[in-house]
Design a binder for these strands. Sequence first.
DNA 1: GTTAGTTACGCCGACCGTAACTATA
DNA 2: TATAGTTACGGTCGGCGTAACTAAC
Lengths: 315, 315
Amino acid sequence: MKLQQLRYLVEVAQSGLNVSQAAENLHTSQPGVSKQIRLLEDELGVDIFVRNGKRVVSVTEPGRHILAIAERVLLEAKNLKEAGREFSSQFTGTLTIATTHTQARYVLPKVIARFSEQYPQVKLTLHQGNPTNVAEEVVSGRADLAIATEGLDQFADLRILPCYQWNRSLVVPPGHPLLERPALTLEELAAFPIITYDFAFTGRSKINQAFERHGLTPNVVLTALDSDVIKTYVELGMGVGIIASMAFDPVRDQGLRALDVSHLFENSTTRIGIRRGTFLRQYTFDFIAMFAPHLGKEAVQQVLQAEESESGAAF
Amino acid sequence: MKLQQLRYLVEVAQSGLNVSQAAENLHTSQPGVSKQIRLLEDELGVDIFVRNGKRVVSVTEPGRHILAIAERVLLEAKNLKEAGREFSSQFTGTLTIATTHTQARYVLPKVIARFSEQYPQVKLTLHQGNPTNVAEEVVSGRADLAIATEGLDQFADLRILPCYQWNRSLVVPPGHPLLERPALTLEELAAFPIITYDFAFTGRSKINQAFERHGLTPNVVLTALDSDVIKTYVELGMGVGIIASMAFDPVRDQGLRALDVSHLFENSTTRIGIRRGTFLRQYTFDFIAMFAPHLGKEAVQQVLQAEESESGAAF
DNA sequence: GTTAGTTACGCCGACCGTAACTATA
DNA sequence: TATAGTTACGGTCGGCGTAACTAAC
């Protein structure tokens, strides 16, 4: 049994049981992959894939178990390499963060500025996507950290670190009647056309909940994937915008007025998600601490180590 | 990075940093081992071993982390092979049980008889030893299950399954005065010379506790490693014996009389210990269920999966 | 001087890639 | 017929073992 064989195996499974595709992803030849998988099956004495003639059709029941273990082996092997890098060059490496627009645009810049100053040799990469993309990036190992408000808790393989709470602001054009209301209510708000986030984004669910709980149906005239689009259409007079408070920048957004409406909606919590069982570099711990000061190295390790599930004994 | 290199690495560490010894254990040549370890160190860019000239002297701090991860990789790789065997031949394999004398001699025989009948193709091996040996056998992977009353909870890598409770009997020669006492007390017992288990064995600690709690100092004239020795010396008239109740066999031990003394001592619990993260064969689950009927497959898996610690992120 | 480890070197096996062949949709 | 996978074959690389060398104790 070779690590290479396990890599081939997992890649085939992840390429939709397409051996040729897997070979391409692995930058090697298709017959090689095919052969190594046969050899592994021979060695284990079990068919991993169901073949219809020559086509790989599905995964056998034993194959599912074997794949799960193979993935763990590869994860640990990756950790080993990471550990090597950690000690050989403490201050160089890469850190890939998968996150959503609001974080990337309004929250991360100053964290990243500090981080880059302290670790100029670490190559930072941002992968932007919706909360589900973000979680998948981390689960698959393409990114190291997921930072998002929604969607992370759906993934059993992610360990979750709550970072900070935030709420929303209403943005309107200058002179808008709602600016005169000292204590805005949801009812008043529901009377106006609303522009806010697309579903499954940046705490959109809390907005819906609040209206529903009051038996109101907001008149959402436009949903957007990011705050910038929302602000643009508010400036155009299409409606009033509900955005994350940190997405309003009084300097840049001079064509708009913001009104804190945290009394109307529940707080949202932005979280970091890390794949369970991952070896973290020192600079990654430091990045997390810069993002959320209460998350020191010990606190993060505690979460990562707690309640590990799906051990090797599972069957 | 190859699995082989990790095997070499771990074996050297476990052979007291003796490369030649490790090579012998691995049935390969010493230069090969030496070279592969250098290659691995090169690849990771870190020294794993501290060398004084040519001698391997100790493990570097990075090396300790790398070794820990390497062991996990190998454990998972072993699990993968086990999984292969499980599916390729459900009813054949080996099961190695590390246990103490009392279990091996008085408790396991009937369990093993049933098991062997159901799984005639499974090769059963017993490793007898003291509780610490037993635990180490399982931690190191030389045995699959540890069965013992004491000592298992000292090992973080063992998952513990309580199996059954038991208490003690007094064994004396026929006609002994203590046989006339309807409700024996510790004070009465302390007046006689006592023969019982060696320290750190078969619930010996509970015996000491009971006497201590009553401010008594028992007159222990002989300690033995197993019940058979104790019974032999009781027959010789050297004193009265305190043994595990299941170690008295009225048919075989006709030269002795037994008296239940469970009211004098706390119950002891016999436990099974399994290395965390181990893949268990179906017949192993069945063995456990035969030994302790309340430990079905689900129950065992739950214990194995709960509270996994020392994840890959640990540092 | 003995024990332990590295360097040197040659052999064999294994993996990989190309090419030809075969089966599926 | 196009697409996907296995079989066949040769080149190359890498690991292993023997042997010679070198350093610690």
